[in-house]
């Protein structure tokens, strides 16, 4: 087994870079979708109606307390049995995405399953971060706003939400970092992201140190980047004293 030895051939470096690209795009898309869904779930969880709050609570608990790997297996292997044949065929045939100018290629099924799995899993955590943010707004402010004659919607829109989002921001960044790391699990359903690529390079070249080393550096580098961006944002917000 070669420990350091010669440098990896350019071909393998390209594999790793491509894998990293998939990791970044997947994590970014899943984070975006999970933030939107998590926000909606948080609203549902806080709803006055039990018929809404309880099922959402069940969703959050179920998705947070089962391993992402099993959820990915479920979406990849298990969901096909639940779909109609027509839908399955539609999902597996390439479509031109017309709304996008560049005409992105229709992704293979493992990409869809990976994206859906990662998004649903992450959304449960993000919903809880939003909920903690709402909980962090002093109750007196809501009472005060009501005393000023604001409607429930106005209180929510102008008093609670802006502050809740600000409180939830740092933990939300933590969730985005988790999403980036968690995207590595999609290798188990054959999605060619960074971990998958590093494993592939390793089996082909036996240059384990380089294959895993480069992948690890790319992961850690992007985590550090997210963290510093977050700290910079926090710092700047403090400097200019601006809300958000």
């Amino acid at each position: 087994m070669t420990v350091f030895g010669e440098l990896l051939a350019p071909k393998y470096l390209v594999w790793l870079i491509q894998g990293f690209g998939v990791t970044v795009v997947l994590a970014a898309l899943a984070s975006l979708a999970a933030t939107a869904l998590g926000f909606v779930l948080c609203l549902g969880r806080l709803a006055r109606s039990r018929w809404l709050a309880w099922p959402v609570a069940g969703y959050l608990s179920l998705f947070r307390n089962t391993p992402l790997l099993i959820q990915l297996f479920f979406w990849y292997f298990g969901s096909t049995a639940l779909m109609s044949e027509g839908l399955l065929e539609w999902l597996n045939t390439p479509h031109q995405l017309d709304m996008v100018v560049f005409g992105i290629k229709w992704p293979p099924f493992e990409y869809l399953a990976g994206f859906v799995g990662l998004t649903l899993y992450t959304s449960a955590f993000i919903a809880e971060e939003f909920r903690a943010g709402v909980g962090g707004v002093p109750a007196g402010q809501v009472t005060a706003a009501a005393a000023l004659g604001m409607t429930r919607y106005q209180i929510w829109r102008h008093i609670v939400m802006p502050q809740a989002i600000r409180i939830a921001m740092p933990p939300l960044l933590g969730q985005y970092m988790n999403t980036l790391k968690n995207s590595s699990l999609t290798m188990a359903i054959g999605l060619a992201e960074l971990s998958y690529a590093s494993r592939q390079v390793e089996t082909e070249t036996f240059k384990t140190f380089q294959a895993f080393g480069i992948a690890t550096l790319l992961y850690i580098g992007s985590i550090v980047l997210i963290e510093t961006t977050g700290q910079w944002l926090q710092h700047r917000r403090k400097l200019i004293g601006a809300p958000l």
Binding site: N65, I70, F73, G78, A81
Partner: peptide, 20 residues
């Protein structure tokens, strides 16, 4: 071969039970 939905649902519930 033919029961992935049932299997992964069952296993997910098992993990859920452990964690809860």
């Amino acid at each position: 071969m033919v029961f992935p939905t049932e299997i992964f649902l069952f296993v997910a519930l098992l993990y859920f039970a452990f964690c809860s």
